[in-house]
């Protein structure tokens, strides 16, 4: 190609040169991209699995995430906005973002059910919203009562390091543990309060100082995302309440000698 006689300004030369270059470069890139694709995909999946496992307090490396995920998170299905369960769908491969772009009655929302080593059941749902600079998302693990938060993780696209980006810090996420998202039958979600939440408030945590907009984003994201599941959550909670009530009535009938159930007991079952 060290051509001394070729006219480097000729149309034909320019055209052939451009074509050869484009074809070469495109082939090279296609090879590179397809070769690395499985690994990239694996990275993305491993990260999501690690995050889901994190919500139930299990820390794994990217390599072990797959096995651990299969072990703990056995049931994965989708629910609709009205609470109907679709067992056919694998929640892990549902893309929440593209589901949310669909119309409300077509949305399939992912639900993960994890079984803890001690046999307890946790429900894990993904949440998604907007922070200051870009998207934020995360996973919320709920206890069997579908109200108490067992664990939570957040991640973000491009929040300010040291400020909004602190939503991923364990110190921030830890606050959510033990908070409840239902008050009676009413969904309250969890508020993120600037200037500090009252420590006894079961529905509020402290915001990040200097990260007000990201904190508000988290609050919004939880409120909206959990609301989408509220029909499903409520239906299970009602079933549980009925079962509990039935058990209570049975127990009451069984032990005729015992005094009547005190009035508060029923709502404590929630």
């Amino acid at each position: 190609m060290e051509g001394k006689k070729i006219n480097r300004n000729g149309n034909l030369y320019t055209f052939i040169y451009a074509t050869v270059l484009v074809v070469l470069v495109a082939t090279l890139l296609a090879l590179c991209a397809t070769g690395l694709k499985p690994r990239q995909q694996q990275n993305i999946e491993a990260e999501a699995k690690q995050q889901i496992l994190n919500t139930i307090g299990i820390q794994t490396t990217a390599d072990e995430a797959q096995a651990a995920f299969e072990r703990y998170v056995g049931e994965r299905y989708a629910v609709s906005r009205s609470g109907a369960v679709n067992q056919q769908a694998d929640a892990f491969y549902l893309n929440l973002k593209s589901e949310l772009a669909k119309s409300e009655h077509e949305q399939q929302l992912p639900v993960f059910q994890a079984t803890m080593p001690d046999g307890q059941r946790k429900y894990i749902v993904p949440v998604r919203g907007n922070g200051l600079w870009g998207e934020i998302w995360g996973y919320v693990a709920l206890n069997d009562d579908l109200s108490t938060i067992y664990g939570i993780v957040f991640d973000h696209e491009s929040e300010t390091p040291g400020l909004g980006a602190e939503i991923t810090a364990p110190a921030f996420c830890k606050q959510f543990e033990g908070k409840t998202i239902f008050e009676g039958a009413q969904l309250t979600s969890v508020a993120v309060v600037k200037g500090g939440a009252h420590p006894d408030d079961p529905h509020a945590v402290d915001a990040i100082s200097g990260g007000t907009i990201t904190s508000n984003g988290v609050q919004d994201m939880l409120q909206r995302s959990l609301e989408r599941y509220s029909a499903y959550f409520s239906s299970i909670r009602e079933q549980q309440a009925r079962a509990a009530m039935a058990a209570d009535t049975l127990a009451a009938a069984d032990s005729l000698l015992q005094p009547a159930i005190e009035p508060g007991a029923m709502s404590n079952q929630h």
Partner: peptide, 15 residues
């Protein structure tokens, strides 16, 4: 020594 002058910048950018 092979790059056509007219599309020099584009060739550079593409590479």
């Amino acid at each position: 020594r092979t790059i056509p002058n007219r599309i020099r910048i584009i060739v550079q950018l593409i590479i």
